[in-house]
Nucleic acid binder design. Sequence first.
DNA 1: CAAACTCCCTGTTAGC
DNA 2: TGCTAACAGGGAGTTT
Length: 294
Amino acid sequence: MPELPEVQAAVDYLRKRVVGCRIIATKILWGRSIAKLSPATFIRRLKGCSITEVFRRGKYICAALSSARSRESQFLFIHLRMSGSVDVLGSKIPVDPYDRVIFELDSGKTLRFNDVRKFGKISLVNEQSVITDNLGPEPLDGKLTDKLFYTALQCRKRRIKPLLLDQAFLAGVGNIYADEALWSSSLHPATLSHQISEESARLLLAAIRTILLEAISLAGTDFGDGVVSEGMYRPKVYGRAKSQCYRCGKGIVRLVVAQRGTHICPHCQKQKKSSSQSTGLRRTRMRRQAGKGN
DNA sequence: CAAACTCCCTGTTAGC
DNA sequence: TGCTAACAGGGAGTTT
């Protein structure tokens, strides 16, 4: 599942291969991969545009476009969601069954948006803000200080894991790196944000950054010859249920928090008891079981 | 305001 | 062994 580091790798890959290219034609093989616009409009508005820049914002791949005709610029925002990927291939390479959108470039190559599960979306907008206004700060941006992060946590009363996953709160962190950062800073995923101490907040932000940077350095190695390194971040807790915790040796447990699979070490990540919270959870669980029985 | 729930999809996997 | 049902997961939208 692409999160910030994987999206950054895709951006680095694309930047080298498509910046300066002109889009000659676009083929849409799955209409719902395009957000908002009809396929015909999408194709028409892209025709003849040049790609001037490729960058990342949150989990979006962004391509800035300029048109020879109209002076106004456009932006292509690609969200890979669960299973999306991008490739730049020779135009003669056969279409893959999971290719959803193909952009034909004047370089003789094609930019292919491939997406098995069809969750990915491509938006074409005139203003970046249409997309970016809904995004929180970049976790690696120095302007996000410890103080600002701590204050942001204090302003909310939400469980820390779903808060980290909320792209309007922080842009780019997904399920895997949220679990990893919480384990690293010894926080239970259901800890309420306003109950996190300033010191814990500092450790959490540091953990997020360390983990993202490590994953970027591993996932993002592109040797420029079409081979992208397969070195991958090795999770400490994510997907390691029933394995031993690297810190204390006890068993990793998988639970569900906010409808998301969540992996923790119950020994290292203890939750401070909050009475209203535990009763709330118990009620939910009882209601679920009652529903299943019918 | 927080959080649960639903939907979108299909490859993988647990269970029979 | 072969089948089916459950499951995973990001994010938008809806309901509690």
